[in-house]
């Protein structure tokens, strides 16, 4: 099966720090990948390079046939990045719902403004997605009136409304109170079951163990180990992975 995401030789610096060191990997359609690692290892930066929220200096990103070569300039390059972003949906650690819009307005903003979808149709699509995350009843609430878990579920609905091929989750549960994590994970589980291709940066080892097809362990800007959850959690080969996991599980 041909890959839906192809990352090749991705490099990124923040000033003097080499954050991503020649990262390459592929993701198959419907594959669920969890990227784990210590904070500062470059996981979030990697995810943000996939839709060019961060600009890598070197390398290529390809999602569903749209290829962007890093370091490009000009209109064509911008249009390619735009096309790439339409292929991907992103969910942030801090939700980032538009504060001045209701839940439904947040969800239909992309379809209406970016795709030019008629409002009536967008509302139908928006409600469908709000139902999917279990928040149809909250359609007219502003984000500040929603709990963290509800905000994150609306954020997922907002991303889904653009009908992306790949979902990028950047620590989607890290800002949540423990009792709210479950409702977000349940929505993510639903997406896994529907066959969504997912790239998730997470500290939620339970989710990784249960739903990931493949886990990538990132250390100091590189993948130093990867494998199925059983392999990686039960028999980590690299010493650094072992140290990280034992630290986490105790």
């Amino acid at each position: 099966m041909s890959a839906i995401v192809r990352i090749a030789n991705l490099n990124k610096h923040f000033d003097q720090i080499h954050v991503l060191k020649d990262i390459s990997f592929e993701v198959a359609p419907a594959e669920v990948i969890c990227i784990i690692g210590r904070s500062g290892s470059g996981k979030s930066t990697l995810l943000r390079c996939v839709n060019f929220l961060e600009q890598p200096e070197f390398g290529t990103v390809e999602v569903d046939g749209v290829q962007v070569v890093a370091g490009g300039k000009g209109r064509d390059h911008q249009q390619q990045i735009h096309a790439l972003r339409l292929k991907t949906g992103m969910v942030f650690q801090s939700f980032n719902l538009f504060a001045h819009m209701t839940a439904l307005q947040n969800v239909i903003e992309g379809p209406v403004t970016v795709k030019g979808m008629p409002k009536k149709e967008a509302i139908e699509l928006g409600m469908h997605n709000l139902e999917k995350v279990g928040l149809a009843a909250k359609r007219d609430q502003f984000p500040s009136r929603l709990s963290g878990g509800q905000q994150q579920r609306v954020a997922i609905a907002r991303a889904l409304a653009m009908e992306p091929k790949v979902m990028l989750f950047d620590e989607p549960t890290s800002a949540l109170d423990p009792e709210l994590i479950g409702e977000v994970l349940a929505v993510m589980q639903k997406l896994v079951e529907e066959g969504m291709t997912m790239l998730t940066v997470t500290h939620e080892m339970g989710f990784a163990r249960k739903f990931a097809h493949r886990i990538l362990y990132m250390h100091d800007g590189r993948f130093i180990e990867q494998g199925s959850p059983e392999q990686l959690f039960n028999n980590p080969e690299d010493e650094r992975t072992r140290a990280f996991l034992s630290h986490l599980l105790t």
Binding site: H82, R85, G89, F92, F98, E109, T113, V114, R158, A159
Partner: peptide, 25 residues
């Protein structure tokens, strides 16, 4: 900045972000 990033992620252009997300707030 999170508001802009969320808007970029759903494919909005700089102009759309200014008009629809930043200025109203």
């Amino acid at each position: 900045v999170g508001q802009r990033e969320a808007a970029l992620a759903i494919g909005m252009t700089q102009q759309q972000i200014m008009r629809r997300v930043v200025l109203p707030q």
